[in-house]
Write a protein that binds this DNA or RNA. Structure first.
Lengths: 346, 346
DNA sequence: CTTGGCACTCAGTGAACGAGAGTGCCAACG
DNA sequence: CGTTGGCACTCTCGTTCACTGAGTGCCAAG
């Protein structure tokens, strides 16, 4: 038995099924792919593939469709990424250029990815703890409430309101505020948020410099860092899910539901499958039941990290039915992640 | 002929159809509503209602379902809002309390509304131009880029990056920045953004105080104000659309598509139907084809404004199939809008 | 190991048909 | 004149049945 040909058959089945979304039989397979063998041989191979759990027949007298495991070996061993055409790359570059604002960059990115892949695209906002603090600002909102605004090197802006005993709207209050601002910024500036927190903590422990204010700010920043798990995400292309209703067993209610729970999405983007470690530029694929989230078990997720330098600050990815064009999605996600990293550098 | 009874029949049809989502016939209608008349009479009324274009029969031998016009007269003339139970109100208050951050307030609001109505909920972020400026901050991001952060009284924070000739990261640059910050804040503080812009413009026209910096900041703020139409919205409950697939003619692809285009959503929230002017607390309803947006013509939208004092700063609303429980949705939207206003006051 | 042949299985399709829900119309009644 | 009971009629929907065609599994021969 030729394992090579058997794998070629698997690849052919995956490709045809992805394109037509109909079970593929031995004959129709021969029409499109010139394997130099007969239908009967293909049938034997199919039987073997079915025994191996890589394909399955929806019912007795239909063709075969890939199982999750089938897609998995297809992705791992067979898929050859077709690099994007020069035109595509140019389009990407042009589309992403000319956005300064972080919000705008991510918004364009996520839309672009959704359009390219015709799937749901997800982009994670740059991690707070891993990016550097550019500026901390303290703004009194009312006699008892103070807003702490922290601006990161990535352009991300986060704010928290804290309650204070002192009224900082008064002239003396404003003075004190200015002093604290200087002290705090001196401690935090150009440090990664994690390190900035450490610095502030020691500042707060020191009797000399401590004040209710530094404690409050520290608490606010810690809160922001802790909420990291609730990091924002941008989403686009939800409508693509509805294009192929047949790909979703009953309704897409559970899928839409999961998409709205950003915590869940972040877990998907962050955690990666199996042994494969991802550097920047590496793409991870999670297929169907491999997926820990109930309600997304009939979907696949293709993700990659992005970052500045060698620091990984976030993830991008697409989500779609398991019947997905993996080679295309993988190279598209990789390319977009690369461009995004490049833009964040600049 | 009794117009009263005819309207009662319309109301009964709407209610039954909303509940069962099945065409309602003369007999089954009599089962549930004690009109003191016979089936034949109801049939006559139904024929009249059909002539008037308020109901229609999907096919010859089925019951009737309301048309858009039918829902419209139901809402305008027949629906009696059932006020929320005390328990419901308590739940709302409890759910919305304990959120300081604007983001969190709006997030909770939109989720709450989605849960209450079992529809898609939309909340518009407070308008920039109509709220007051609390603070303007200038933060150098790189030698050529400066971030302008404006913090509004509503807690909303908006940022823009501007390109500068001067390098403000140097000590002298920082000095100049501090001076400008003072000048700008003096001009803008506690004014509505619109007024602040006017003040800044005259500042910029004055040779004495003008600088490339004030022009830049002015441009950034004008940009932010102009983008008002792209004001952010929060969205929740998309999955509710998928619960009743039958309510959407073919797929819900166009609906999901429209929901992603925030500009479209804002137009829906902002523009109100017909002659009815809305003060705070007034609820507007747009039904089916009344809707200007292609792709949302099989949906209805229930909206209300919210604001601080008598100033309207944003809108909330829900979107669902035309087969919607209007009385419930209307009072729920109104109540949530009221609570939201109250919270923003505090 | 590959191949052609053959019997078998089963989803999908369309026709025929009965049941059920609902309508429209009419003649009679108060 | 509005209301009512009755009746004939019209459709949709679900069931059944037979048929077709794609596809399989297996076997014996090359």
């Amino acid at each position: 038995m030729s394992t090579d040909r058997r794998m070629a058959v698997l690849a052919a089945i995956v490709e045809d099924y992805v394109r037509t979304s109909e079970p593929v039989g031995s004959r129709s397979l021969l029409d499109r792919h010139q394997l130099g063998v007969s239908a009967a041989t293909v049938r034997n191979d199919m039987a073997a593939l079915e025994d191996a759990g890589l394909i399955t027949a929806p019912h007795t007298s239909a063709g075969r469709i890939p199982t999750d495991a089938g897609y998995r070996t297809f992705v791992d061993e067979l898929a050859q990424l077709k690099p994007l055409s020069r035109a595509e790359r140019a389009a990407i570059a042009q589309f992403l250029d000319g956005a300064d604002e972080l919000d705008e960059v991510l918004d364009r990115t996520v839309r672009l990815l959704a359009t390219l892949t015709k799937q749901v695209a997800v982009v994670q906002y740059p991690s707070l703890t891993r990016s550097t603090v550019r500026h901390v600002e303290l703004v009194p909102m009312s006699p008892t409430r103070l807003m702490v605004v922290v601006i990161m090197g990535t352009g991300r802006v986060e704010q928290r309101v804290i309650l204070t005993d002192t009224d900082y709207t008064t002239p003396t209050g404003l003075d004190e505020l200015a002093r604290s601002r200087t002290v705090i910024n001196a401690a935090a500036l150009e440090r990664r948020l994690g390190d900035a927190l450490t610095a502030l903590r020691s500042l707060d422990d020191d009797q000399h410099t401590s004040s209710s204010l530094t404690s409050g700010v520290l608490a606010a920043l810690e809160d922001a860092a802790r909420d990291e798990s609730e990091t924002k995400v941008a989403l686009a292309g939800t409508a693509n899910l509805a294009r192929t209703p047949s790909d979703f067993p009953l309704t897409l209610e559970p899928v839409l539901d999961a998409l709205e729970q950003h915590v869940v999405l972040l877990r998907l983007l962050g955690t990666h499958a199996g042994t494969e470690e991802e550097g920047a530029g590496e793409v991870a694929v999670r297929i169907g039941r491999e997926n820990p989230v109930t309600g997304l078990q009939s979907t696949s997720i293709v993700t990659s990290g992005y970052g500045v330098g060698d620091e990984l600050v976030g993830h991008v990815g697409v989500l779609g039915p398991t019947r997905m064009n993996y080679p295309a999605a993988i190279s598209q996600v990789r390319t977009v992640a690369t461009y995004l990293s490049r833009i964040m550098e600049g």
